[in-house]
Design a protein around this nucleic acid. Structure first.
Length: 502
RNA sequence: GGUCCUUUGGCCGAGUGGCUAGGCAAAGCUCUGCAAAAGCUUCUACAGCGGUUCGAAUCCGCUAGGGACCUCCA
């Protein structure tokens, strides 16, 4: 089955064919480590983690590059026109690199919580100033950039005359060039008068005296523009042309559009074959973002310490929540929706745990041919759905179809020989591969502690003895007190008792 | 002002021409010392209006609501 990917550039689903057979180069825009990551940031990192995992499952050798933006994008046309990292460092009385380190560590911690696989290369912007300067020089040599008061700007008008600037983001170039319509925003933009045209963007920015982060360049001391780092690092590690570039939809313009322009001029070839963009996480229908003042930081999410949260949420709940919707659909956050995901995930994971325990006989035929066919169909569809632009929600839906069957086999409501041994084995294999390897999910509770297991078995045995003697006061005491500690006991049909954390 | 997207049952969320998505919640039943869990069953929606079609949630048009981008943004 071939994999098809929705390409934002062509706005179509396309069959995925890597530039080099068997190998995939993938670049994903990483975090700006000038602050804490929030729930919105989790979506691309989890989403592309699944893409990475799935490509690996499909036997591709993937080089996955995700940058760390630690130089801080200066606010190109912002009111303060100040380096974000430098600015906050002064407020917090920290060295800029100290701040960068702090938030990089925090980001890595969050990724670990989400069980995201580390990228193959995680380059930093500050570590690639030379590459960025070289690239800018090349663009100047090609005649597509100009120097103005120690800053360098990309000449969009000239580029657009022969290239498709605006195609990725659906911009109309005439509206960007000499954009009178911008006056609608009535914003006075600093540095604007330096540019030849409003559509031009900075490749290098001259640093004012108070700017902490600064590097020497052929044009004086300054810092790199917002878009150039991705172009420079992607080119260095993935080549002039690579397969997949991912990021949030909100980066299409101007970031990715400008990346295309820079790289195309420098390398004389379109940089990316498949552009992938994830949709936003919204909160009450509105994009989660700093400017809307509606962010929920990951640390707040995991601790429940936020007015919009009724409880803390496990990272795996969040991961599952994100996987339950398609990456190109907007996903609306609410505490209620997450609680619902938490329960759903728990149920699915418990079914998976049960499935793992089922002993499968050798070479048996299916007694229930109809059920056998249904299950085989659900199992077969899972890869088909993932091949269709990573439709994780549909895969999960199929798994939920099978959860009652697994539970029924355990409770002997469905005899184990209803399904053939081959299908049972396939089911075990598919669940393990999809849940763990591809979706990167893990059990969300801490029950895999051997000492705890032993203690629990002891309590269960004592309770069983009490029940046998109809000493329900004792048996209920054990159950109730454990419940207060967050441990739930479940009496089963066969007289056994299982337990889990609430 | 421009460009584009979106509107699905109590809630979340799949779904681009015909077949039950799924989850959560709710109700009933089964099992059970009780409870929980589990299983079974019920709730069958597609903003409004018009059009195309044998047939539309799905295509087209209009209307209304919501949103994104055009500025840092995942």
């Amino acid at each position: 089955m071939p994999l098809s990917i929705y390409n934002s550039y062509t706005r179509k689903k396309e069959t995925f064919e890597p530039l080099t057979p068997g190998h995939v180069g993938m670049y994903v825009c990483g975090p700006t480590v000038s602050g804490e990551s929030h729930l919105g940031h989790a979506r691309p990192y989890i989403g592309f983690d699944v893409v990475y995992r799935y490509l690996t499952y499909k036997k591709f050798k993937v080089r996955y590059v995700r940058n760390i933006t630690d130089a801080g994008h200066f606010e190109e046309e912002g009111r303060e026109a100040e380096d974000k990292v430098g600015k906050k460092a002064q407020l917090e009385k920290l060295e800029p690199m100290e701040l960068v380190q702090k938030y990089t560590n925090l980001f890595h911690w969050a990724m670990k919580q989400f069980n995201c696989i580390e990228p193959s290369i995680e380059p930093t912007a500050t570590g690639h100033i030379v590459e960025q300067i070289n690239m800018i020089e090349e663009i100047i040599n090609q005649g597509y950039a100009y120097v103005q008061n120690g800053s360098v700007y990309f000449d969009v008008k000239k580029y657009a005359a022969t290239h498709d600037y605006g195609k990725l983001s659906g911009r109309v170039i005439d509206e960007l060039i000499n954009a009178e319509s911008r006056e609608v925003t009535t914003r006075t933009l600093e540095g604007q008068e330096e540019k030849r045209d409003t559509a031009d963007f900075a490749l290098w920015k001259s640093a004012p005296a108070e700017h902490l982060m600064r590097w020497r360049s052929p044009w004086g001391e300054g810092f790199p523009g917002w878009h150039i780092e991705c172009s420079a690092m992607a080119t260095k590690y993935l080549g002039a042309s690579f397969d997949i570039h991912g990021g949030g939809m909100d980066l299409q313009f101007p970031h990715h559009e400008s990346e295309i322009a820079q790289s195309t001029i420098c390398n004389h070839v379109a940089p990316v074959k498949y552009w992938m963009h994830n949709n936003m996480i919204t909160i009450n229908g509105r994009k989660m973002g700093k400017s809307y003042n509606n962010v929920i930081k990951l640390t707040e999410l995991f601790s429940g310490n936020h007015p919009l949260l009724t409880q803390a949420f496990h990272p795996m709940t969040v991961r599952f929540f994100i996987l339950q919707s398609h990456y190109r659909s907007p996903l609306d956050f609410s505490s209620e929706a997450l609680t619902s995901s938490e329960k759903a995930f728990k149920r699915l994971w418990e079914a998976y745990e049960i499935l793992k325990q089922i002993n499968v006989a050798q070479n048996t035929q299916a007694k229930d041919v109809e059920l056998e066919e249904k299950v085989k169909n659900w199992l077969g569809e899972m890869e088909v759905f993932m091949d269709d632009d990573f439709s994780s929600p549909k895969v999960l839906a199929n798994m939920f179809e099978m959860a009652p069957i697994i539970n029924s086999i355990k409770d002997q409501l469905i005899p184990i020989n209803a399904l053939s041994s081959d299908t049972l084995l396939l089911m075990k294999e598919r669940f393990a591969v999809f849940l763990e390897d591809i979706f990167g999910l893990q059990g969300a509770d801490g029950t895999d502690n051997n000492q705890l297991k032993s203690v629990m078995q002891l309590l269960i045995d004592i309770r069983k003895e009490a029940k046998a003697k109809k000493d329900f006061a004792t048996s209920d005491k054990i159950r109730i007190q454990l419940n207060e500690m967050g441990i739930v006991l479940k009496d089963e049909k066969d007289g056994n008792t299982s337990w889990g954390l609430t």
